[in-house]
Design a protein around this nucleic acid. Structure first.
Length: 170
DNA sequence: GCTTTAGACGTAT
DNA sequence: ATACGTCTAAAGC
């Protein structure tokens, strides 16, 4: 049985799901409670909604607004398949306010599978917590994002990164 | 400088 | 077999 907690601020709805005390799923902000719930419970068979982990859901809101995450690695369920685990482990290491390219990630895990890095990140079950928004293209363009490039840009700007014409400014 | 081309990798469809 | 949140190198404008 998974436990789902919600948090909302104005028109932004965040949600998080935990199983055995570990975070198994987070979502990017949605514009309605219904959407947030649908998204976070996608793929989860049985769950109950409670305020028990509301602080985690609220934390998502803080990360979205550019504050450093206080969620610890031991709170996360990182039970992924080998390749994806390597990729997400690397992404998790990117500090707040910093960025890395797809190429740097693939190099760090001794692979040339830049494309596969993209797909692995696309399947990230813990957006915001695993900062996949900090992974960009080597030409410093934003690249794509599950929640849309616009949202990726917004989060990065909230972290203090300057962006002009879809490009990171050094 | 820009664009297009092709092949490289892991995974899901 | 093909498509993808990509990269590089080469070619042409």
């Amino acid at each position: 049985m998974a436990i789902v907690s919600l948090f909302n601020h104005e028109e932004l709805y965040f949600a998080i799901a935990l199983q055995n005390g570990k975070i198994i799923k987070s979502i990017l902000p949605k514009s309605s409670k219904k959407e947030a719930l649908e998204e976070v419970t996608n793929g989860i068979k049985s769950y109950e909604i409670s305020d028990k982990y509301k602080s985690f859901a609220e934390e998502l809101y803080h990360i979205y607004n550019g504050k450093p995450s206080i969620i610890k690695e031991e709170d996360l369920n990182l039970d992924f398949k080998t390749f994806q685990k390597k990729v997400l482990d690397e992404v998790l290491k990117i500090p707040h306010g910093n960025i890395k390219t797809y190429k740097q990630i693939s190099k760090a895990i001794n692979s040339r599978a830049y494309r596969a890095v993209g797909t692995a990140i696309a399947k990230n079950p813990l957006p915001l917590i695993i900062p996949c928004h900090r992974v960009i293209r080597s030409d410093l363009k934003i690249g794509n994002f599950y929640g849309g490039t616009q949202m990726k840009k917004e989060i990065l700007e909230n972290e203090g990164i300057k962006i002009k014409d879809n490009k990171i400014q050094k």
